[in-house]
């Protein structure tokens, strides 16, 4: 053993911002997360130059996966151009030299806050979701040691009770985002605060999803072709948001998840939430070439 073997040559900064030991830890934990779908795996969650709660978990996974050949797309609530998405995209490009894109079809790695793109993801794509609260049991069990035991025992009775109480009180399930879902028939996970609209997209999807919570220091994963079933009662079917008939006022896209924009006269107008899909729809309407991939929903209905 010599000094030469114990040291490495000087670099101005680590490639992809994270140092090698941070990456190795995330690699080990990611492998375990893939092997036990939906199980929350604790990890160290290093500091990144961004405040906790702004996507640091997703960023660390992206920094670990990234290489100069990986094309990156970053979205925030469906939009590529919001401050959070634009900043993370710029950061990732800066620390890795990876090419960036806004087109879902061109991306190899998609980091997302709270949406799954409307165009179907492929087998070679990775979706990294930013997760604020990875623990689906927290509303019913704030003690995380007891919650861990409940996961170990697959003791999810209280989740059902919570849904039942919502139905009794309000006549329907009130859970709007992060709808608790059973992964591979064993672990209940939160799919991160994606709308109910996006939950069916995860079931038997072709792509790999990694969900990472930086502040809470846990990550979990949904491998391709894995069952993801939202918790429902047999006689109260799972319903997605009623957006199937809405039309985007800017692009004319119809049958996708919409952002509601309140108007001065008290009514609402709607805009397609997946901004790049809206852009492509406008290009196509104007006669320009734009390739829109196969979408999960057609005419507001999820293909069976």
């Amino acid at each position: 053993m010599s000094l030469e073997t114990l040291t490495k040559s000087w670099e101005p900064m680590s490639y992809g911002f994270l140092d090698a030991s941070a990456k190795r830890e995330i690699r080990r934990k990611t492998l375990k997360a893939i092997a036990v779908p939906g199980c929350q795996i604790p990890y160290a969650s290093r500091e990144v130059p961004m405040a906790r709660g702004w996507g640091t978990g997703g960023l660390q996974v992206s920094c670990t996966l990234i290489n100069p050949d990986m094309r990156v797309k970053v979205i925030d609530q469906g939009a590529d151009d919001s401050v959070n998405a634009a900043s993370i995209r710029k950061f990732l490009a800066r620390v890795s030299g990876a090419p960036v894109t806004m087109d879902t079809l061109e991306a190899d790695l998609i980091q997302s806050r709270h949406r799954i793109p409307e165009e179907k993801l492929r087998e070679d794509q990775v979706l990294v979701l930013q997760v604020p609260n990875p623990e689906p049991l927290r509303p019913v069990q704030p003690n995380m040691s007891i919650a861990r035991q409940m996961h170990a025992d697959a003791d999810y009775g209280r989740m059902w009770l919570q849904l039942y109480e919502q139905i009794v009180r309000s006549g329907r399930v009130m859970q709007g985002a992060s709808y608790p879902s059973l992964v591979n028939g064993r672990f209940v996970m939160t799919p991160s605060p994606i709308p109910r609209w996006d939950v069916p997209k995860m079931d038997m999807a072709a792509h790999l999803t990694i969900l990472s919570a930086g502040r809470e220091k846990r990550l979990h994963a949904v491998p391709p072709y894995t069952r993801v079933e939202p918790l429902v009662f047999d006689d109260v079917p799972f319903r997605v948001e009623d957006h199937g008939r809405l039309v985007c006022t800017r692009s004319g896209a119809r049958g996708f998840f919409m952002n509601e924009i309140p108007q001065e006269d008290g009514t609402s107008s709607f805009e397609v939430s997946d901004s790049e899909l809206g852009v492509k729809t406008i290009h196509r309407r104007d006669g320009d070439a734009a390739r829109i991939g196969e979408t999960w929903y057609t005419d507001g209905e999820m293909a069976q």
């Binding site: 670099e11 680590s14 490639y15 992809g16 190795r24 290489n67 100069p68 800066r94 030299g97």
Partner: peptide, 14 residues
């Protein structure tokens, strides 16, 4: 600024 290039070790382990 110029972005860092991956070292051989980084490219291989990645």
């Amino acid at each position: 600024t110029a972005h860092p290039a991956p070292s051989e070790f980084e490219a291989r382990t990645n």
